[in-house]
Computed example of a mutant assay.
Amino acid sequence: MAAVLGVVMVLFLGACGTRVAGRDGSATDASTAGGPIPWTMAGPISVTGARLGDDHRTLLLDAQVPHGPHACVRGLRAVVTDTVPQHTWVQITYSSPSGDRRSGCTGVTTATARVRLPEPLGARDLIVDNHTVFTADGAHPPALRLCGPLGCRPPATGCTPASYEQALMAVDAPAHTYREAEVCHGKWLVLDFTWRTGPACGGGEAPECSSRLGDRWFFRAEPSGWVPIVHGTRGGCQDVRREEPGFPTAMCVHLAPFRIAR
């Protein structure tokens, strides 16, 4: 009888599994989940905002971090890594189990990291985690202004190559796009561009390298840069005047249908 009871107890305990406490105090079922979930060092998913305290040295940074039904972030901190006359660099780190989906940390929330600068930010641009840049130039205090892909001081709209590059970025043109033609006057722009398809050819002229796609876009100048109006391949003004009646007829009436140059 004792032997039978012993076998039953072994089976019962085996079915219960083993509960393992995680380092954050939560428990993980090691028998079904493959062991405890590790916490690892990580950086923010993105940094969406920055603002200065009244002393112009206390910096508050809004960082997107993992979120879930249990603890997903601990040890959130920001540190100054370097300062030069033009820039101040700050790095944000935290620990999280989000690298393992068993943690449930699959959502996103905003957390605020605080750091005190060694001296007032002044006219320096703030670089967070090497790629997100903020500036006080043109900002609305206490917030700093988030700079765009063209930097904190993008070229003004105008009939210049630098502004045409901004227009291409505004329509998410593919990398290595070629500008085929521009019609530009004041606050209006027509831009034809193409991009190569197929294998990478290193600029060669072999037949397999000549396959291209392309588009024609119409733009209006705004304080933020060139703003897309509409795109199309037909000649004349029909495409753009339907969306923007104020677009100058003289800039589009003589446009031929868009053709990809070979």
Rank of each mutant, 00 (worst) to 15 (best):
P97Y: 04
S98A: 15
S98D: 11
R102C: 02
R102E: 01
R102G: 02
S103I: 02
S103P: 04
G104D: 09
T106K: 01
T109F: 00
T110F: 07
A111W: 15
A113P: 03
L117I: 08
P118K: 02
P120G: 04
L121A: 02
G122Y: 00
G122R: 01
G122I: 00
A123E: 14
R124F: 00
D125E: 12
D125Y: 01
L126H: 01
I127T: 06
V128S: 01
D129K: 07
D129P: 02
D129W: 01
F134D: 03
F134E: 05
F134M: 09
T135W: 05
D137K: 15
D137M: 11
H140C: 10
P149Q: 10
P149F: 07
L150N: 12
G151W: 03
C152V: 01
P154C: 07
P154N: 08
P155I: 06
P155W: 00
A156M: 13
A156Q: 12
C159M: 10
C159V: 07
P161D: 08
A162T: 08
S163I: 03
Q166G: 12
Q166H: 10
A167R: 01
A167I: 05
L168K: 03
M169L: 14
M169F: 12
V171S: 08
D172C: 09
P174F: 04
A175F: 07
A175Y: 08
A175G: 14
H176N: 14
H176S: 13
T177F: 10
T177P: 01
Y178Q: 15
R179V: 15
E182D: 14
C184L: 07
H185D: 15
H185I: 05
G186Q: 10
W188H: 13
L189T: 01
L189K: 04
V190S: 06
L191D: 00
T194S: 15
T194M: 11
R196D: 09
R196L: 09
T197D: 12
G198F: 05
P199N: 11
A200Y: 15
A200M: 12
C201H: 02
G203I: 10
G203A: 09
